[in-house]
Each structure stands twice: as structure tokens, then as C-alpha cells.
């Protein structure tokens, strides 16, 4: 942790079975996580560059702050790179 990888992208994903819909994550990462009308997180599936330090920090907050451990960050390698 602490090392910021500048290459590649990430998405934040949710395990909908674990998620309880109290919506804590949307407070921790308001720029990437919104809530639907029932309070469950809606996450833009568009990958975010790892170089976007602000977004990555928020995503990590949400991941660690989720009381159900339902969120996880998934790295996506740059297209072409491996």
C-alpha cells in the first residue's frame, strides 16, 4: 500500500450479496459511487486511470470503510500491456 501505480486503470466493484444497502460507501467516495432509489450503490463501470490519485484514494476509503467488505478494487491492465 501507499505505492501509487501510474499505469493501468481500476474499477471498483461490489458483491451485491454482501452489500446491505446502508450506503456508507457513497459518503466515502461520492465522486465514484452513487446510490439508487433503494440505497444500493451504483458504480460507473468505466475504468478510472490509476494516475487519478484522488479517485483512487476515495475508492480505497470506500473499500476499507464498507462494513460488509462488499467492495473491492479491481485493476485493469492498460489495453495492450500485460
Amino acid at each position: 500500500m501507499g505505492v501509487i501505480r501510474r499505469h493501468g486503470q481500476f474499477v471498483i466493484r461490489v458483491n451485491p450479496i454482501l452489500c446491505d444497502g446502508f450506503g456508507h460507501c457513497a459518503e466515502l467516495a461520492p465522486e465514484i459511487i452513487h446510490l439508487d432509489e433503494w440505497g444500493y450503490p451504483v458504480i460507473d463501470p468505466e475504468p478510472i486511470p490509476l494516475a487519478d490519485v484522488g479517485a483512487l484514494t476515495s475508492a480505497r476509503y470506500a473499500e476499507r470503510g464498507c462494513p460488509r467488505q462488499a467492495l473491492f478494487i479491481e485493476r485493469i491492465p492498460e489495453p495492450g500491456a500485460r
Partner: peptide, 9 residues
């Protein structure tokens, strides 16, 4: 009814 979006949606 395990997942919110399915159970409510």
C-alpha cells in the same frame, strides 16, 4: 432476494 437491485428492482 440476496441482492438489493434484484429484490427491490
Amino acid at each position: 432476494r440476496q441482492c438489493g437491485p434484484c429484490a427491490f428492482g
